[in-house]
Amino acid sequence: MTIFAELGMRYPIIQAPMAGVQNAELAMSATRAGALGSLPAAMLGPAELRQALEQLAASGPGPFNINFFCHRQNEPEPAEERRWREALAPYYGELGVRADATTTAPGRAPFNAEHAAILTEFKPAVVSFHFGLPEPELLARVKATGAKVFASATTVAEAQWLAHHGADAIIAQGLEAGGHRGHFLSEDLALQQGTFTLLPQIVAAVDLPVIAAGGIVDGKGILAALALGASAVQMGTAFLCCPEATTSFLHRAAIQGIHGHHTALTNLFSGRPARGIVNRLMRELGPFSALAPTFPHASRALAPLRAAAEKAGESGFSPLWAGQNVSGCRDLPAAELIALWVTEAGLR
C-alpha cells in the first residue's frame, strides 16, 4: 500500500497550499473530492490556525495537509526599510500615500513550538514544510502526532538532504511553479530546473515517494508526471479561479487577462523569489531588486501602496502569484475540476 492510499486519498492529487488566496473551504472541497486538501498556515496567527483546524475537523476525517514555512526569520533592519521606502517614494507620491504610512500586513512566522502544540491537539494526516525542515526537536514533535511529513525540494541535493533529515515524501518543485520557491540549500536560481527534468532525477536519487509540482494543470500533465515516476502531483495555480478560493477579483482578472501567461520570479513583494504575473511594479523596478528587504519584510512598505492601488481598482502593487501555465484556471468548483482531471488521466 502506498503512503497516499494509507492516507485515504482516492486520487494521487494534492491541492497545493496557497497562502493569501485560500482558507479551509478549498481544502475541504479538495479532500471531499478524493484529493488531499491543504491549508496554508504560514500567515495564520495561533487563534486563526486553531479556528481553521476546527473547521477541518468538523468537516470529517480528512485527510488534510497543514503547511508551514520553516525559514530563519531575522528582525527588520531599519536601514533596509529606509532604502526600500526611498525607492518606492515616487509611488507613494503618485497614490497620495504618506511616505511613513504603515498598513498591517499578515506575517509569515516560521514553524515554532506553539504550532507544534496545536498540531499535537488536532493530529492532521500530513504536515508539509517549505524552505527545508524545522529543527530536529520540533520535527520530532510533528512525527509524534502520527503525521506524514512532506517537504519541498527545488534541486536533487535538497531532495537528498530532506530524505536524510526525516521527510516521508519529497515535493519536487519545478521552476514553473507559482508562489515562493522552496529552495533552502542555495539561493542560486540557476541550479533550479523545470518540473519534468527535475522530477526523474529526484525519483532516481531518493528512496521516498516523490510528488511533482509546477506547471501541471490537467489530466495530461498528471499522466506525464506519473509516467516519470511521481507517486502524486501537487496542483495550485489551476485552483485559483475556483469559487472556493479567496483569490481577489483583481487577481482573477489578471489570470484571465491577455497577459496572464506572463509570469516571472520576483523578490519585490516579500524579499524572497516567488513566481507571479508580471505587473507594474515588476516592470518598472525589474522583477529583482537588491533594495528589497530580506524575507518576509519587503511587504511592510508595499502594504499601503497595495491597499491604495487596489482601492482604485489596480493590481500593479499586488503579488499576483501564479505558475507559468494558467491555461487550466477555470471558474469551476474544485470538485468538478478534480473530477475532470481524473477522467482525463483515466484514474477512475
Score class of each variant (00 low, 15 high):
R272Q: 14
S299C: 13
P293E: 14
R275E: 04
M282C: 08
G276E: 03
S299R: 14
A290Y: 00
V278E: 10
R300Q: 11
A309E: 09
E284T: 12
A308T: 11
L305E: 06
R280L: 11
S270V: 08
R272S: 15
A307H: 01
R306W: 02
A290M: 09
F295A: 13
F288Q: 11
F269S: 02
G286S: 06
P287H: 02
F269C: 05
P304W: 01
P296R: 03
A308K: 10
R280S: 02
F295M: 12
A298V: 15
R272G: 11
I277K: 05
R300A: 05
E310Y: 01
A290E: 15
P273R: 12
S270N: 12
I277C: 07
L302E: 06
R272L: 12
A309V: 09
S289P: 13
S289M: 09
G276N: 07
S289Q: 11
A301H: 09
A290F: 07
P296C: 13
S270L: 08
E284N: 09
P287F: 02
V278M: 09
K311V: 00
R283Y: 06
A298M: 12
E310G: 05
L285M: 13
V278Y: 04
K311N: 07
G286F: 07
E310P: 00
M282S: 12
F269N: 00
G271D: 14
R280Y: 02
A292L: 00
A309Q: 01
